[in-house]
Design a protein around this nucleic acid. Structure first.
Lengths: 213, 213
DNA sequence: CAATGTAGTGACACCGAGTGCCGAATGGAA
DNA sequence: TTCCATTCGGCACTCGGTGTCACTACATTG
C-alpha cells in the first residue's frame, strides 16, 4: 500500500462473469495504468501527455478521462478499496493491543507485498515521491488515509476523529511511513516492513519522555 | 507562519530607496496577493480566474505570471525568507534545550502573529486548508519546511538530514502544527500558540513509552 | 429475427493555467 | 538626446480537464 495494487494483470480478477447490459468496456483501468506507467518510466511524467497515453492504449482521449479523473491518478490503484480494507482490518484487531501498535501492525500489513510485485511497486512509488505534480496530488489521498488512522485512534481513545490527538497521530504515522518509503527507495537492502517499524520507533524515541532531550 | 506574512502593506518595507536601473515595477507582490485573496474570499478560489485577478489589479495576464509562478502561490508570502529566518532562529537556540523543545519553540515563535494580522491570516489559512488545489500545492511548501526541521534535528542528533529519525520528526511536527491550525480555524477560543503546544504534547503522549498503550 | 434499451466510445468545441517570444514603454545614466 | 536596463503586456501555443452528442456494441424481449 500506499497506492493500491494493480500489476499488469489482465484484469477480471476472480470471476470471469459478464452479467448483462450494453456495450463491453474496451479496456481496463489496469491496462491503461500499466501502459501509462511504462511511458512515464521511459520518458518522464511531464514528457508524456494524456494524448500519448490514449493513443498508446488505442482509446480516445475522452475515454481516458472516463477511466481516470486525472493524469495524476494513474499511479494509484483502487485506493478507496484499500482504505476500506484497512478499516476492516483495524476493527478486527484485538482491543488489548495498544493503539499505536495496532496501527503500526495495520500499516505494515497493507504495505506488505508479494515479492513479484515489489519491482512494480518501487516504480510507482518512485514516481509518486519524485514527480512534483504527483507529490502534490498525493496529499489529497494521504488525507483520506490519515482519516482512517485518526478514526481508529479516536474510537480507541474515546475521542472525536477531528480532535488534536487522533489527527496528530494520523500525521505522524503518515510521515513515518513516507520516511520509510523514501529510505527504502534509496536503499532496498532493508525490507519495507522493517523500515516502517524502525521509523515508528524513531518517533517514539524522539517524543518519548526519555527520548533525545 | 506557515504562509509568510504579507498584509495589505503598501510595500516598500523599511527602506524607501529606489537605487537604479530601468523601468519601475507597476505593482507589488503584496498588492496583487491582497487583491486576489479578496476575490477568493468573495467568490471562491475556483471561480476566480487569473484573468480576473490581472484585470482587478490592472496588469496584464502575462505580468501576473512574472510576479507569481502560479495561482496557487498567491496565499503564500515570501515563504523561503521565512524558512531562512527559522533556520537562523533555530541555530541561535541554546544547545542545552532538548531538540523537540527547541523545535516546538521555533514553530510557535514563527506562528505567533501581531493581533491586527490575525484576521487576515485566518482567511489565508482557511483557503490553504480548504481548497483542494491549494492543499495539494501546499505539500510542496511543506516539504521545504520539513527539511528545515529535519536538518536541525539531524545536526543536533548527529545524524544525516535524510535519516529516518529526522525525517520522521519533520513529518510529525508538520502534522502537529497543521492539526493545531485546523482546530484553530474551527474554534478560535484557544490561541494558536497554545494549540500547537497541546498538539505536540499529544504526540508525545501517544508515542511515549507510557502513553495510550 | 427484428425491435428496443443500455452502457461504453470518441469526436468536437470549449475553458483555464502556464510558457515562449518579442516589440513597446519607462526611467536612469552617459 | 542617445543609450541601456528593466518591466510590461499582447499573441500564439501547449496541455489538462469538461460538457455535449451522436454512434457503436451488446443483451434482452417479443
Amino acid at each position: 500500500m500506499l497506492p493500491g495494487g494493480g500489476m499488469p494483470t489482465t484484469e477480471q480478477g476472480v470471476q470471469a462473469a459478464k452479467p448483462r447490459a450494453g456495450r463491453q468496456p474496451s479496456t481496463t483501468h489496469a491496462e491503461i495504468s500499466h501502459i501509462a506507467l511504462t511511458l512515464f518510466i521511459e520518458r518522464g511524467f511531464d514528457a508524456v501527455t494524456v494524448d500519448d497515453i490514449a493513443s498508446a492504449a488505442s482509446i480516445g482521449r475522452r475515454t481516458f478521462f472516463r477511466y481516470f479523473a486525472s493524469k495524476n491518478d494513474l499511479p494509484w490503484g483502487d485506493f478507496e478499496a484499500q482504505l476500506d480494507e484497512m478499516r476492516l482490518y483495524l476493527d478486527a484487531l484485538p482491543r488489548e493491543l495498544p493503539v499505536i501498535d495496532a496501527l503500526q501492525q495495520a500499516v505494515i500489513h497493507f504495505n506488505h507485498l508479494p515479492p513479484n510485485e515489489i519491482g512494480y511497486h518501487r516504480q510507482r512509488m518512485t514516481l509518486l515521491l519524485t514527480v512534483p505534480s504527483l507529490i502534490a496530488h498525493a496529499s489529497l489521498r494521504y488525507a483520506a488515509w490519515r482519516q482512517v488512522i485518526a478514526e481508529y485512534a479516536a474510537s480507541r481513545l474515546g475521542l472525536a476523529a477531528d480532535d488534536l490527538k487522533p489527527q496528530a497521530i494520523g500525521w505522524a504515522l503518515l510521515g513515518a511511513s513516507l520516511a520509510a518509503y523514501e529510505e527504502w527507495l534509496r536503499d532496498d537492502s532493508s525490507g519495507l516492513d522493517e523500515l516502517i517499524a524502525r521509523s515508528y520507533q524513531a518517533i517514539g524515541d524522539a517524543f518519548g519522555p526519555s527520548g533525545d532531550r
